[in-house]
Nucleic acid binder design. Structure first.
Lengths: 151, 151
DNA sequence: TTACTACATTTGTACATACAAATTTTGTAA
DNA sequence: TTACAAAATTTGTATGTACAAATGTAGTAA
């Protein structure tokens, strides 16, 4: 469905405006579907994101700065995100012994297990969108998205 | 900056995963910049969106259903959004005389004036992203975004 | 040591979002 | 007319987000 139909506009839009709206709307579709997938597992997408960052540490603990830096939405509140994960026992939090300002966050066995369950579901989610494009188109798509956001 | 650098991953990602992350991240950049633009005018992007929908009605009032339907993020709470606009006297709200379940929302003169101030700023915002792409690339970009989100 | 600055994180507060339940009004079938 | 289901919107509640201010820690210069 074209973006013009979606927002039910009557007037003609510039290519620039269409592109911008298309980016916003497409992200919305993707994010909505992802939240739907995570919902039965009682996880928000940002919580999932943090868990995956922690797994990427391969055993090494991460501190709050590091987590914040690697998140897609940089502005969300990492403390309260980690609080929620702690409540579900998906991560541990300890004061760093070398620098007591820092916190050491580690994914637990339970967190690892949850990610393992989600792995195939996430791949399926990724594929469900990518399958509409050929590899060549995906390459172009990635390049264009990168160009578009670079100011 | 490539998406791999942004999320600082070590492992190789599929094209599908890259595309999905690129969409999320690009939207984030666009939305952040837009919020920045609107902030001095004390308007959230969804509030702006509603105002623009109302202007598109060209005098005819819109009801809540209609507004909800045309918003990018379908799930936000239209009642409370309109409440905020009412407080700022950018819209009016009246019970529809023909169907008293419905509300008639109209943009005020003040709301129109605000949009007129924002119009050139919004166009500049759109252009600041689109200028990195040629018209041909923008056409392709729009097509690929549309294909990508269609499940 | 004391004072000062920077760093890392947390907390407060206002606002936004998600979603279910409640409210009010309308149309319609018995 | 009464009862009932559907439609349109609002409200309640939990959670998430934005951002400034506060807290606690470290390093350093006088």
């Amino acid at each position: 469905m074209k973006i013009e139909e979606i927002i039910k506009t009557t007037s003609e839009m510039s290519l620039a405006k269409k592109a911008l709206l298309n980016v916003l709307f497409t992200q919305n579709v993707v994010a909505d579907k992802f939240n739907e997938i995570l919902k039965p597992h009682d996880l928000s997408s940002e919580q999932f994101n943090v868990l995956r960052i922690l797994r990427g540490q391969k055993g090494k603990p991460a501190n709050m700065c590091m987590i914040q830096e690697r998140m897609i939405a940089k502005t969300s509140n990492t403390t309260r995100l980690v609080d929620k994960l702690l409540l579900k026992e998906l991560v541990t939090r300890e004061v760093c012994s070398e620098n007591r300002r820092k916190m050491e966050i580690t994914i637990t066995e339970k967190g690892q297990k949850l990610l393992e369950v989600l792995d195939p579901i996430v791949i399926e989610h990724e594929m469900s969108f990518a399958k509409n494009l050929t590899s060549e188109e995906l390459e172009i798509f990635n390049t264009l998205l990168e160009k578009f956001r670079t100011i």
